[in-house]
């Protein structure tokens, strides 16, 4: 038990000293067509980027992306925000990604992180997990999704976007 406590103390020490700004890591991802891309090249040069980590079997993830998709044309028009939906599906369910994305008519970029290198590099424990970046800096992170939270996300985007149309 003692060791456990010291463990937690150690962590606290870290959390206090950590700076709140962090850069996006650079790892290799695949497009849904199977092409190799560097995660660095996926960010929006002109405006904010939302990275949404999801999987075909994750019901709340799909609910969130469906909810965003409903208004995404408006979001894009108003703030030029880019959304990258990062599928963490492994070999078991990866095949469903492309048909599902088409079947749902999602109107944003989808990348595949099959062995979860990107997810791991960002210390993501569970999905859904949403990250917003400005340039290469992470400015927002959130785990989980409850109905209506997409509105909060959009408020944040509106507030921080360099572009407001």
């Amino acid at each position: 038990m003692k060791i456990h406590l010291s463990f937690v103390c150690f962590l606290m020490l870290f959390s206090i000293t950590l700076s709140s700004q962090n850069k996006m890591p650079n790892v290799i991802l695949k497009t849904i067509e199977g092409k190799t891309v560097n995660s660095k090249s996926t960010s929006n040069k002109n405006g904010l980027t939302i990275y949404s980590f999801w999987a075909t079997w994750c019901v709340p993830c799909i609910n969130e992306l469906d909810a965003i998709n409903k208004d995404f044309d408006k979001w894009k028009l108003e703030t030029n925000v880019k959304l990258v939906a990062v599928s963490t599906d492994d070999a078991r369910t990866k095949r469903r990604v492309r048909p599902l994305v088409n079947g749902k008519k999602w109107n944003f970029d989808v990348l595949v992180d099959e062995n979860q290198a990107f997810k791991r590099a960002l210390n993501i424990n569970g999905i859904p997990h949403t990250i917003v970046t400005k340039g290469s800096k992470i400015i927002y992170r959130k785990i989980g999704y409850k109905p209506g939270e997409e509105e909060d996300l959009y408020k944040f985007i509106l507030k921080n976007s360099p572009i407001k149309n």
């Binding site: 962590l11 959390s15 000293t17 700076s19 962090n22 850069k23 960002l122 210390n123 993501i124």
Partner: peptide, 17 residues
Amino acid sequence: SSYCLNSQILDNLTASY
């Protein structure tokens, strides 16, 4: 960690628990 405090490693450190 003390060492980290004084170095640039910290600027880029991420942790999860």
